[in-house]
Amino acid sequence: MITIREYKKAATLEEAWELNQKRMNRVIGGMLWVKMTKGNVGTVIDLSGLGLDKIEETETEFRIGCMATLRQLEEHPGLAAYSGGAVKEAMRHIVGVQFRNLATVGGSVYGRFGFSDVISVLMVMDAYVEMYKGGIIPLAEFVNMPYDRDILVRIIIKKNKASFSYQTVRISKTDFPVLTCAAAVTDKDVRIAVGARPGKAMLLIDRQQLAGLPVTAAGAQAFAEYAAQVIPTGNTNRGSAQYRTHLIKVLAQRTVLEAGGKAGC
């Protein structure tokens, strides 16, 4: 656990951003990850007073405040309907309900961790990160950006005609995933995001239209095999690169087929 010299509940985003420019200071989301780190923090900046814990839904998009919890995401009926249950599936294996009542979307996305189910599922959606100073950035671009001292304000998901699916392989049900795979079948293309490779989620769009549209079983298989060839994997104590590559073949095929099935309904 870190030591903290001062706690500040920011009254405005500008105040939060100002404080965050100092090297000794840190923004905390749910603090679940930060709590496991060591070291001295000057001022810990709490964003929970800024009303950023809401999920707003309009005709065209979802606007998810950075302080919205993973549990809120999991339970939101609009997201459930739009994602066909994929968002809930991405959340429900993360440790436990009490954990998800604290973990924030902002913290999960800002962290850009390889194991993140949150990033994996958002990656196949038309998702954007809104940074306080940096503006609106596509998620696929954001995950490859280095950490900076900007503040993540909200996640935006633009609604499209699309069906989604999410599956993971885990050694035990509440563990980190060995591999994550999200799939989206839109009226234009098929795309997957593979995470916990162990690297960060990587978006792969089926530009060669291997999967077919509508998706066929053989097509899903073909796209999955292609994905396994081009998406790099690595070794960790939970699994080897070889195993992960094999899993890409399996999960990509299954999620693309499942999303394709939903699209067909």
Partner: peptide, 11 residues
Amino acid sequence: ITPEQIVMPEK
């Protein structure tokens, strides 16, 4: 016995 060992027993 891990999932990886079940899928790839020779390793």
